[in-house]
Amino acid sequence: IRCIGVSNRDFVEGMSGGTWVDVVLEHGGCVTVMAQDKPTVDIELVTTTVSNMAEVRSYCYEASISDMASDSRCPTQGEAYLDKQSDTQYVCKRTLVDRGWGNGCGLFGKGSLVTCAKFTCSKKMTGKSIQPENLEYRIMLSVHGSQHSGMIVNDTGYETDENRAKVEVTPNSPRAEATLGGFGSLGLDCEPRTGLDFSDLYYLTMNNKHWLVHKEWFHDIPLPWHAGADTGTPHWNNKEALVEFKDAHAKRQTVVVLGSQEGAVHTALAGALEAEMDGAKGKLFSGHLKCRLKMDKLRLKGVSYSLCTAAFTFTKVPAETLHGTVTVEVQYAGTDGPCKIPVQMAVDMQTLTPVGRLITANPVITESTENSKMMLELDPPFGDSYIVIGVGDKKITHHWHRSGSTIGKAFEATVRGAKRMAVLGDTAWDFGSVGGVFNSLGKGIHQIFGAAFKSLFGGMSWFSQILIGTLLVWLGLNTKNGSISLTCLALGGVMIFLSTAVSA
């Protein structure tokens, strides 16, 4: 259960009878995928790494000078000259100064003066180019299975845990398959586009800190620079940016070097996208990844198990997540596992009318040892309800109150669905055939309105939902006002479609 501690969480529900669903994975976010007769899966884009970055340009932001020398000439005696002028490691300046009897010249006039100092770069920052084909995306998957609280967001041991898996995709191999043991396998067909235009970005490294910066900004930095990788004795261009020549006297000129420019660069980098280094690879934390999940090989585990009949206890007080759902960790005293956990939410304890829904599909106890633990997640209705676990006299209950409203949740879900469709863009549509167009249209309606429909009408039977949709269509056909007619027709059509397409 990876997503319960992530604030940016998206719930995606598969269409009834569908074998695939489109998701948008982004750094700092987590996606929970639910479908009829399929286990619930949490998917998170953990890291995006980039390798084989080529150094484009380096800037010196802290330097020192040494070996200063000057040469001067009297008027009419030609130009002052130093051998160091031809050495690229030196920074030199030529000027004219007033000369006369007082400073060793027989004539009054302008004399030539040249001053040089050896330039040494102490600290530099480097910009590297990123090729999209060198990106690698690491995705962690977790099935809502027989897990306890100690396994949440624990990325170790996934090789031997059938509840978890790690997959890596690249532009050259965008397809992967996550093996989930008894739950089958989940196929991923990803489109490795981060949403960032790397043709316009460089990877900047300064003092063990890293950013993504725009090329134009990078090339306009007014500091000494050299092109390409460091060859040991780089040729620094624009050395004068960190060196200041003071007022010249008759035979000498003082040279000083400016202080470190790291603070000024940090100020200019305010708002830039931060990154990290992992050995020789860069780690990015921006952008998104679009994936199509193929769920035809994914299956529920323990459908044929019998119900657990022994007593359950709450190991922890049920807690609310950031998303309005409830996490419950229970301990089973029996030894008759594997068995299914009898769990439901009810409005009252007399009729036990089921409300809400299970995020953890078909929760089971897989071990036959005593005191096995299991964590599950529920989506309670707004208002008061009861969490009921167990059967008969051994069942345990917990009162729950959820604040908020169904309308607010439906609106929030619609906005999130619209954002998801905007990110998917043209990849969500198939114009290759008439059937493809209608299929894409259905998927689009489901992406945007599916979660809201589930919130508003999830407790009704599909037949009642179709009746309401048919009534809206009838009202649309018999209303003389054009805008009201079109609105009723659209709402009725969407409702009829979703009542037959969205899983219960």
Rank of each mutant, 00 (worst) to 15 (best):
I1L: 01
R2L: 03
V6H: 01
S7Q: 15
R9S: 05
R9G: 13
G14P: 00
G18A: 15
V21D: 02
D22W: 08
V24A: 09
E26D: 10
M34P: 04
V41N: 02
I43A: 01
I43M: 15
E44Y: 04
L45M: 13
T48C: 09
T48Q: 06
S51R: 05
S51E: 09
R57V: 03
Y59V: 04
R73P: 03
C74M: 11
G78R: 04
E79G: 08
Y81K: 08
Y81T: 15
Q85L: 10
Q85V: 15
Q85H: 11
V91K: 10
K93Y: 07
R94M: 09
R99P: 04
G104D: 12
G106A: 15
L107E: 06
G109Y: 07
K110L: 01
G111H: 04
V114S: 10
F119H: 10
F119G: 05
M125R: 03
P132V: 00
E133L: 03
M140D: 08
S146P: 01
G150K: 06
I152D: 02
G157N: 02
N163S: 14
A165L: 11
E168F: 05
E168C: 02
V169S: 02
P171A: 03
N172R: 00
N172F: 06
R175P: 06
T179W: 08
G182A: 12
G184W: 09
L186C: 05
G187F: 05
P192G: 02
Y203A: 14
M206S: 03
N207Y: 07
N207M: 12
H210C: 02
H210M: 10
W211T: 06
W211N: 09
L212T: 04
L212N: 07
W217Y: 07
W217K: 08
W217F: 09
D220K: 09
I221Q: 07
A227D: 07
A227L: 07
G228L: 13
D230P: 13
T233Q: 01
H235Y: 10
A241F: 14
V243D: 04
K246N: 06
S260W: 08
G263C: 10
V265P: 12
L269D: 11
A272R: 06
A275P: 01
E276L: 01
D278P: 00
A280N: 14
K281H: 03
C291H: 04
D296A: 14
R299Y: 06
R299T: 06
R299M: 09
L300W: 11
L300P: 02
S304L: 06
A310K: 13
A319W: 06
L322V: 11
V326F: 04
T327M: 06
V328W: 05
V328N: 06
E329P: 07
E329I: 11
V330K: 09
V330R: 02
Q331D: 08
Q331E: 14
A333L: 11
I341K: 05
M349F: 12
P354W: 00
P354S: 10
G356W: 07
I359Y: 07
I365M: 14
K373Y: 07
M375D: 01
E377Y: 05
L378V: 13
G383H: 09
G383S: 01
S385M: 13
Y386F: 15
V388T: 03
V391F: 14
V391W: 14
G392H: 06
T397F: 05
H399K: 02
W400R: 08
H401F: 13
S405T: 15
I407M: 12
A410R: 01
F411S: 09
A413M: 11
R416Y: 10
G417K: 09
M421A: 03
A422M: 15
G435N: 15
F438D: 00
F438K: 11
F438H: 00
K443C: 03
G444V: 14
A451T: 14
L456Q: 10
L456T: 06
L456Y: 11
G458Y: 10
G459Q: 15
W462C: 11
S464V: 00
Q465V: 01
L471V: 10
V473E: 02
V473H: 04
V473K: 01
K480M: 08
G482E: 03
L486H: 04
L489R: 06
S499H: 10
A501D: 00
A501H: 05
V502N: 12
S503D: 11
